[in-house]
Structure formats: structure tokens, C-alpha cells
């Protein structure tokens, strides 16, 4: 694990001048992930917020080789790059050691890019895939995705007089990837940078496919003040909505256990997309959301061999 001093001394792989919104935690996620990879890295990214804001022609924030192909194929694309690396290294045409990181938002990963990711993970490429999960299609203007939390207000599942936001609970993508029996998988948060840094280092040091799912709070999409992003991540973790854990050697392990598990409302109350949950008539929805968080947390504790 590197100290902040060491991380700051490294050549940064992403330059400022990108056009992410003020307070964008997805952008911070990219910085923290890339800082944790000191050697040569080639990256890909699915169409989405960070792809757009970092590569508006003729400008690029990328100081390392980067490819954006399309929305649904970041994993397949970087798997092709990795295959080229294996072939060209074998032939002696490439001599340097290079790591490969594919990025995608929740839309490009949980939804439209799931098949491409599943294929790349199953084939066993030596690569890391990082999902920056901001829990909706933010780039197109806040539409629900399969990662969007229950009852959240989005443009395609808005809160109205009759219907109150998203009907479904979020898909558990991390567990879907774990079911591929990958070399490494984890959930992380930039609000816990040491934990994230360690996970990226581990993912890149292990040979084979690795996956890290990072919860990346989005100020305009979640509707919280721009300075609150780090706090939003912390609360998501401390309410056990977003547990920090990893999967290695076929075993799950909690990497952080909140001293006190906070009620989900501690997280939702700061966010405009959940405002309705804090009105008396929608109390039952908040209760349902809480029950689901509790159920998943209990199940995870069991899977991690932790006392309930």
C-alpha cells in the first residue's frame, strides 16, 4: 500500500482540464484507481460521463494510451488489447510490462455491457475492469439503470402521484462477477481511499481477470451539494448499503466493518432523489429499502464468515 505522499509523487495518468461536473466522484475514482497503478497502463472506457469529459476532441485528459470504442464493449475492447499484448510480447515486438484496465459506468457495465464483461472475465484475460457505479445513466441525463437503488427518483422512473421511483432493488453485479470465479473481485469506495488503493494494487498484481465495483456518488444525479461526495460514499458504506469486501482465492472477506451500522435514512436524507422517502406517506418504501439492505448485509456477513 502506498502513502498519499508516495501517490502524489507518482506521474499522474489523468490530467486536469477534463470537463466533469464540479465535485464529480466518478472523476475522482479514475484518479484514485490510476494512481494506484504505478507502472505502464493502457485503459479503455465505455461511452459515458468520464469517457465524454476526458476526451472531447481535440483535447484528452489521458496521459496514458486510451481507447473508447462504444458503450457496451469496454471489456471486449480491452480484452482485444490484452490479446494483442500477449501476441506481440511473445514475438518480442513489445518488451515492456503493461497492465490493462477497462472502465465503465453502471449503464455500460451492469446493463448494456454485461455480456461483454462476462465474456472477458470468463475468458480469463489478464486485466482489471473497474465499474464506476453512479447508480443511473447520468451521461444521458439521469435515467434508471439496474444499479439504481429502490425507489430512487430518475427521469425514466420518476416519482409521481401514483408511482414512486424505481420499482426494483439494484442488481448485485459484484456477486454476478464473483460467480465467474474470477481471480479477484471487490467493492470499493473513494471515500475509503486506502482500501481502494490496496484493492487496485492487489487486482493488478494477481494474474487473471479482476473486477472492482466502485460506488461513485454523483452530485447532480443524486442531488446533493457538490462538496458532499466523499461523505455520501462514507454513509453508503456505513449504512451497509455498499459493503466493502473482496473475493480472492474463492473466498469473500469484509475489508471494513462499520463500528455502528447506520440506518439507511442517514444516507438517503441528503439526496434529492430520495426526498420523497422522507415524507410520511412514503415511509413504507424507506422501510422496504432498509429491509433489503439488512437482508443483503446479513447474507454477506454469512458469506464472509463473519458473526451476524
Amino acid at each position: 500500500m502506498a502513502s498519499l505522499k508516495e501517490l502524489a509523487a507518482r506521474e499522474q495518468k489523468l490530467a486536469p482540464g477534463h470537463r466533469a461536473c464540479a465535485g464529480c466522484i466518478p472523476a475522482l475514482t479514475f484518479h484514485q484507481v490510476l494512481r494506484s497503478a504505478p507502472g505502464h497502463v493502457v485503459a479503455s472506457c465505455a461511452t459515458g460521463c468520464i469517457e465524454v469529459v476526458t476526451t472531447i476532441y481535440p483535447y484528452t485528459a489521458w496521459k496514458i494510451p486510451f481507447i473508447h470504442n462504444a458503450f457496451e464493449n469496454s471489456a471486449a475492447t480491452i480484452s482485444g488489447v490484452e490479446a494483442a499484448y500477449q501476441a506481440l510480447k511473445r514475438k518480442g515486438k513489445v518488451t515492456k510490462d503493461i497492465k490493462f484496465i477497462g472502465f465503465g459506468g453502471d449503464g455500460g457495465t451492469y446493463d448494456i455491457g454485461l455480456q461483454s464483461l462476462s465474456g472477458a472475465m470468463e475468458r480469463g484475460h489478464d486485466m482489471l475492469y473497474v465499474c464506476y457505479d453512479n447508480e443511473a445513466y447520468m451521461n444521458t441525463g439521469i435515467q434508471r439503470s439496474s444499479a439504481t437503488p429502490f425507489a430512487a427518483d430518475t427521469k425514466t422512473a420518476p416519482v409521481g402521484k401514483v408511482r414512486k421511483g424505481k420499482k426494483q432493488y439494484p442488481k448485485n453485479l459484484t456477486e454476478i462477477i464473483i460467480a465467474h470465479d474470477v481471480a479477484y473481485a471487490a467493492q470499493a469506495s473513494p471515500s475509503f481511499w486506502r482500501d481502494l488503493n490496496k484493492k487496485v494494487e492487489k487486482a493488478l498484481s494477481i494474474e487473471g481477470p479482476a473486477f472492482i465495483n466502485v460506488l461513485a456518488p454523483c452530485p447532480p444525479g443524486w442531488r446533493f451539494p457538490t462538496e458532499m461526495g466523499i461523505e455520501m460514499g462514507k454513509l453508503a458504506v456505513d449504512t451497509c448499503f455498499w459493503p466493502l469486501y473482496e473475493f480472492e482465492n474463492h473466498k469473500r472477506k469484509l475489508t471494513y466493518k462499520p463500528k455502528e451500522k447506520l440506518p439507511l435514512s442517514e444516507w438517503t436524507k441528503h439526496q434529492g432523489r430520495f426526498r420523497h422517502l422522507h415524507q410520511e406517506e412514503n415511509k413504507h418504501l424507506l422501510e422496504l429499502a432498509q429491509q433489503e439492505v439488512d437482508r443483503r448485509w446479513k447474507e454477506l456477513l454469512f458469506l464472509c464468515g463473519e458473526p451476524a
Partner: peptide, 15 residues
Amino acid sequence: GGLIVEPGNSKNYKT
């Protein structure tokens, strides 16, 4: 090909 060959030139775009 729409290639950008100046790495990190977004530093020329002040936000």
C-alpha cells in the same frame, strides 16, 4: 482516425 496524439493536452482547456 480522430486520434489525439498529445497526451494530457486537456491542461490547455481551463475549467
